[in-house]
Computed example of a mutant assay.
Amino acid sequence: MSPDSTTTERFTGALIVRGEAGYEHARVARIHHSRHPQRFPAAVLLAETENDVVEGVRLARERGWKVGVKSGGHSFPVWGLRDDGLLIDLFGLKDIHYDATTGIVSVTPAVTGGQELNPYLEQFGVFFPGGGCSSVGVGGFLLQGGIGWNFRG
């Protein structure tokens, strides 16, 4: 099922439908082990904006697809890959903001704790108690119970 021009114009990022060039790479990109599940989404959306995510969910609803999300790719069971669904890959959607008044940091899920968030926070004298692997996305760390050297801090 190829996307029509009205579908692809909805996104800033790329929508890659199963069977198109680049699909297999997008399907397994950044899976951090060699066990690539035999699950095949109908399409992969390489989101670049919040609107891409919103429109991706709308497209999935229109087509009757389930939605899977990948932030960093360290999920050992690769929960984001769902047969005949839409995989929304958040790797291209990265934003970090620290409010020094409140001490609250806002990040998008694909921001990595050790490679991106902590170097940013260092200038403010604070840190994220991330996992032992610096390339884990904050979304997966927070949702899947990441454990790191400073997790009790």
Rank of each mutant, 00 (worst) to 15 (best):
E20W: 03
A21P: 13
A21Q: 14
G22I: 05
G22F: 03
Y23D: 05
Y23C: 05
E24N: 15
E24T: 14
E24F: 04
H25D: 14
H25S: 14
A26R: 10
A26V: 08
R27C: 11
R27E: 02
R27V: 09
V28S: 15
V28W: 13
A29W: 06
A29F: 05
A29C: 07
A29D: 13
R30Q: 13
R30V: 03
I31D: 09
I31A: 11
H32I: 07
H32E: 14
H32W: 15
H33D: 15
H33A: 08
H33K: 11
H33E: 12
S34G: 13
S34R: 13
S34K: 12
S34H: 12
R35I: 04
R35N: 07
H36M: 11
P37M: 00
P37R: 12
P37G: 13
P37V: 11
Q38F: 06
Q38S: 15
R39L: 01
F40I: 01
F40W: 14
F40A: 01
F40V: 00
F40T: 08
F40Q: 13
F40R: 12
P41K: 09
P41M: 04
P41W: 07
P41Q: 03
P41A: 00
A42F: 05
A42P: 03
A43C: 10
A43H: 07
A43P: 09
A43Y: 10
V44I: 10
V44K: 12
V44S: 02
V44D: 09
L45W: 14
L45G: 09
L45S: 06
L45M: 06
L46C: 11
L46F: 06
E48D: 04
E48N: 07
E48M: 06
E48I: 05
E48R: 15
T49I: 07
E50A: 14
E50L: 08
N51D: 15
N51Y: 05
N51E: 15
D52N: 09
D52C: 07
V53F: 06
V53N: 07
V53A: 01
V54H: 10
E55L: 02
E55R: 00
G56M: 03
V57T: 02
V57Y: 01
V57C: 11
V57P: 00
V57W: 00
R58D: 01
R58H: 09
L59C: 08
L59F: 08
L59P: 08
L59Q: 05
L59E: 05
L59H: 04
A60Y: 02
R61S: 03
R61Q: 12
E62D: 15
E62N: 07
R63T: 12
R63Y: 06
R63I: 07
R63L: 14
R63P: 08
R63H: 13
G64F: 04
G64C: 01
G64P: 06
W65G: 04
W65D: 01
W65H: 05
K66H: 11
K66D: 12
V67A: 02
V67I: 04
G68V: 09
G68I: 02
G68S: 09
G68W: 08
V69A: 11
V69H: 01
K70G: 02
K70C: 12
S71V: 09
S71F: 02
S71Q: 09
